[in-house]
Structures are given as C-alpha cells and as structure tokens.
Design a protein around this nucleic acid. Sequence first.
DNA 1: TCATTCTTCCAAAGCGCTTTGAACAGAAAC
DNA 2: GTTTCTGTTCAAAGCGCTTTGGAAGAATGA
Lengths: 345, 345
Amino acid sequence: MNLKQLSQTLGLSQTTVSRALNGYPEVAEATRQRVQKAAAEYAYRPNTRAKGLATGRAMAVGHVIPVSSRHEMVNPVFADFTAGAGEIYVTHGYDMLISVVPDDAEEQAYRDLATKGSVDGIIMHGPRSTEARISLLQEIGLPFVVHGRASDETDDYDWVDVNNRRAFRRACEHLIDLGHRRIALINGLEVMDFARRRLAGYLEALQAHGIDADPALIRSDEMTEAYGYDSTRQMLARQNPPTAFLSSSVIPTLGIRRAVEEAGLRLARDISVITHDDELSYLRNGGEVPTFTAMRSSVRQAGRLCAERLIAMIRTPGGPAQNTLLEAEFIPGQSTGPAPGGATA
Amino acid sequence: MNLKQLSQTLGLSQTTVSRALNGYPEVAEATRQRVQKAAAEYAYRPNTRAKGLATGRAMAVGHVIPVSSRHEMVNPVFADFTAGAGEIYVTHGYDMLISVVPDDAEEQAYRDLATKGSVDGIIMHGPRSTEARISLLQEIGLPFVVHGRASDETDDYDWVDVNNRRAFRRACEHLIDLGHRRIALINGLEVMDFARRRLAGYLEALQAHGIDADPALIRSDEMTEAYGYDSTRQMLARQNPPTAFLSSSVIPTLGIRRAVEEAGLRLARDISVITHDDELSYLRNGGEVPTFTAMRSSVRQAGRLCAERLIAMIRTPGGPAQNTLLEAEFIPGQSTGPAPGGATA
DNA sequence: TCATTCTTCCAAAGCGCTTTGAACAGAAAC
DNA sequence: GTTTCTGTTCAAAGCGCTTTGGAAGAATGA
C-alpha cells in the first residue's frame, strides 16, 4: 500500500493524506482521524527512499567500524555501543547503517556515505590521538559525533568520552593508598587516544606520590585475553615484580587473573587488580561484591548519548560543539587489597 | 555533483551518462571512456535513494539484532559475524542496515524493514528451535538467510549453520576415548536451537558408549564468564564431580578454567575441557598449541557465507532453498588429557 | 538509388514521496 | 451584496535516478 493507493481509497489527495500523517495543521481534525485510521488499518508505511528523496534526509545514521587490517580485530566494545545507540535511533525513527571498513579505506567510506546521501550523520569510533578523520568529516560537512576524543585535534567537534585520565589516576592512587608501589599498566594500543589518556592518568598518580614509573611495567597492545596473560606472566617472572595491575579492559583482565592464579598467587592478597569496566553485556563484573575492583563506565550508555547528541545535531544544525565527559564510577571489588608486607618500596 | 550536472558538463543526456556508467552496451566506447573519466574526476556518486527509488532496489541488507529484554544482552558473536558479512557487502556495493530491537518487538521490525522498502534482504540471527519469525519472513516475501537453524521448522528456507550436533558428539567422544565418564555440558540458553543440537550430540555420544547422562552435569544459560565459573564451581563441589567439561563458547570456558584452577586443579591433568570456539577476534584461542582443545568454526566466515548467499538470492530470486552446513574443526589443545586414574566409571 | 538495419544518442515518463501555489468553500467584515 | 479572510483541500512540480520508446545518422544490402 503506497500513498497514492491510500489516498484513492480515502477519496482524498496525496497532499492531504501526507499532511494528515505528518502532523501538519492545515488538515481538518476529522479528516486526520479518518486518514490515521485507514493508515493503521492498511499498515501503511511510507517508502523510506521516496521520503528521503523528497525531503533530502536519509533518516539514517552511519557508523564506520574500522577493522584493523593487521589484527583482523573487531573492537569488542562495538556490539554494546551499537546496542545503546540503536535503542535511541529506533525511538526517533532513524535507521543505523554500518560500514565495516578495513582501516586503510576509511576515508573513502566516509566520503561515500556523504556523497551517496545514505546518512544524515555519522558516529566515529576509535579515535587515535592524531586523527585525520576529524578534519575529513568537518570538510564533508555531515554532522558527526566522536565516541572518544583525539587529543591532538585543535578544532572544536562533538564528542562523548569517559574521563580516562581521571579514572586511571584515581585507580592508581587507590592502589598507592593501599601501599602498592610497583604498579603495572596493561593498556590498549598505543595509538588510541584513550590509551594515551589512561597512561597520562597513571603517570600523574605515580608522580604525585613520588614513584618513578618503570617502563618494564607498562604495556600497550590490542586488548585480548592472551595479551593480559602473557604480559602478566612476564612481569611476574621479573626479579622485582609488580604487586598491582591496572587494566584497560575486562578482557585482558581475565588473562591477568589467569596468570596470577597460575603463579600460585591470590588476587587481593598477593596481587591487586583494578580494571576498567565497559560493562560489556557478556562479561559482567557484577554481583553483590563484584569480582574485580573497577572503574566502571557503561559503553552502552555512551552509545545512547552519542546517538542522542547526533540526532539533536541533525535536527538543529549549526550550534556550538558539545562535549560530554563521563566520569567512571569506582566500584570496590574483590581484587584489591593492601600491598603484601614485603613489597619493595 | 549529480547526474544532471555531470551530463550537462559533458554535453550529453542523462540517459547516456547513466548508461555509460552502468555498463550498458548501447554507448560508444569512446563516449563511455569520456564519461567515466569525468565521473572519476568530479567524484560523482549516484544518490542511493534516487537510484533505489528508480530501480526498486535498496542496495541494502538488514540485520535484526534481538536484544534480550530480560538479560540486556547482546550476542557476543554478533560483532564478528557482522564484520564478516560487512566485508562481502562492501565488495558488492550493498549497505548494511542494523535494527537493534528488543526481542518482543522483532516481528514489527521485520515487517517495517519490508514495507518501508529499506532493504532487499534480511539476515536472521539467533534462531530458536521453534521460530515464528521464519514463517513471518516467508510471508513478507523478502529474501532471507538464517544464521543457524530452527529444528522445528518444516518449511524449506535458506540457512548457514555449523554442524553442532556432530561437533559436540565428536568432542564428547574424544573425552570418552580419553577415559572420561562424568562429562559436564555447559550449554547456551535452552530455547536456542544451537543449544538443543549440541545437547543432542552430547547425549548421543554418551548413549553410544553406554553412559547414562546425569542431569546434574547439564547446564543451560546465557553464556557469560560468570555462568561458566558458577556452574563449574558447583559441579566440582559435588561428591561425584565431573572430570571433563564441554563448553558452548569460549566466554564461559574462561569461567570454567577459573573455577578449575581456583579449586587447585589443573587443566588437562585433573580436568579436561573442550570448548566450542567461534574464533571471536578478541578471544583468540590460538598459538602453536592452543590453550583449549576446541571445536572451531569461524563465525566471521559464517557471516561471509550468509552475506554471499543472500546477495545471490537477491540477484536471482526464486531458486530452491540452499543450506550450508559447516563442519567444526577439531583443534587439539592443552586443556585435555586422560581421565585421572581414580575417576569413577 | 532506396530500403533496411545498426549504432548511438536523447526526451520524457516514472519510482513514491513532500511541498508550493492555488482554488474553493463558508464565515466574517464592510 | 460585495469583499476579505480563514480553513480545508488539491493539482502539479520536483527530489535524482533508471528506463522506455523513439529518432537521427551511419552503414549495409539489393
């Protein structure tokens, strides 16, 4: 059933039916009722493409998911972020268009989304510290929101991010307060902006307490379970092993725990661990007292916020850039305790 | 730059330019060259919506991602599946439209995708054993491919699935061959078809070797790490604990390992574990000798196959249903060994 | 030479919707 | 009674593309 048929059925013009359904005032209330009733009855849904062509809006939002061509890796955070964003889109009648793109073809992907007119706005994922994509998107002219930030970018742009620096500073200080002095950082890929900020927070905390950072205790890589395990095992094998770990994601944290337990040590008692927790739905760190002490910040919620902001930008363009900085919540768990007595200072 | 402008620039009609770009024969080769060169130069990309409206094709594929409203859970497999499918779409010029839908609103989501004309085909995820969605999709009339199967469905339809029954039968037999008699099954949610088939394979193997299944050793739930941990801990605490575990996904398997090690037992020596491995990119069970003995089947590859099949169906509709049954590969790893001597038979 | 067939191009219609500009009542104002 | 609103409806144009049905010119065949 399309508009033409519906209007013929009703004995009205397409104009009137269209206006009645889209809430324009110049339609008699009685007519509107009649139209709406018929539309519901015949399950009329306007054709997206035709509507888009006529209005110039796509009623769709694009997400470009870079897939690391080196690591063949999909960001584990992506599914939950998407779920959050999707919730919002649905309520506003927007579709979500996903482009899975090898990270060396991203530029073209953004350009195409714009020139083909398939979306009204874009969410950008996984910003590096220096991001060519931001100026690219500005040049393209589509509204966009960045999930995360690019520290080296000087222009204004819209982003939603977690206060990574503060979260890691706070977590690190918590460990220091517990008496830990040798604290390892199991970070994400170095080029990623979030990793850089977490490193900064970690270093700040150490410095504030007069502790020299030990490069041997700092790792950066794709955040897999194996990475957490390997790093931890190697560090624990040193003559001067760390007594605590700070981890960038629950996934490597599982590897940390494994290495710790395999070494015959116990979490909290021998080795403390604080992890960043994105609240990934299948890796919940929940329960009465969560397994891991954590800096918690829901990536799903971040998805919702990005989506809401983007839709607002699409509806009323031209405003000033808005930035949302979420604070991670400190969640005490069962993986932290005072530094063991004999810890070298 | 749109078609009109491009054709004016070239001094040709829109018709000719359109045909030249779309590879129709009735265009002089010289003209075609000229048009293509200009198109490249001005970075002309036809407007998707206009093209779709004219051709009646959306050049997009829909994925409906049900989000369990009870568990607020996104299938962890989804990100990698999507990445695989996305690779294929890109090469064929298709967009990917994702609808994140609470699982009680799925029917409407499918209907809307069809009537709004936003997609040419649909990929269905996470089939239950009895699936109302399949007849719904058949009624709707859009081409669709199911990732997985619905055992109770009698009609023909296109699917791509792993041979879950055989994989779990084989894995279970492997454990039996190693001398294990008390083998636990950490399965997925009971309603899911894959879980039912895995259970069937497991039971077959037991029965074939005259072993009575013990209901206390069979669990079904959402596949989280905590679920694997809790189940294992409880089972190991029994007076007659299992000596081996069969797990439906790497995520609960991590929990199994944790519970095993926490109980002071060692994998392979005291407790054997075989896991199903979807090759999730951030939970690689790799290395020279993988950590876990596994039944491996890449979900990313499944995504590619589904996408390819769907595009074929869109291009030439009306053929007979095609079914692809993938065999999981048996991967010997470090988590299996002979049943401990004193194992009760 | 003229009729016929290709080859190459084009004008215009149409996809399903929104939106502009106008028309037509009936009511209100003069 | 005429004019001016006001409220309601409609015809038609337009969004950017594809595709149908010619048409004009070149090539072919008798």
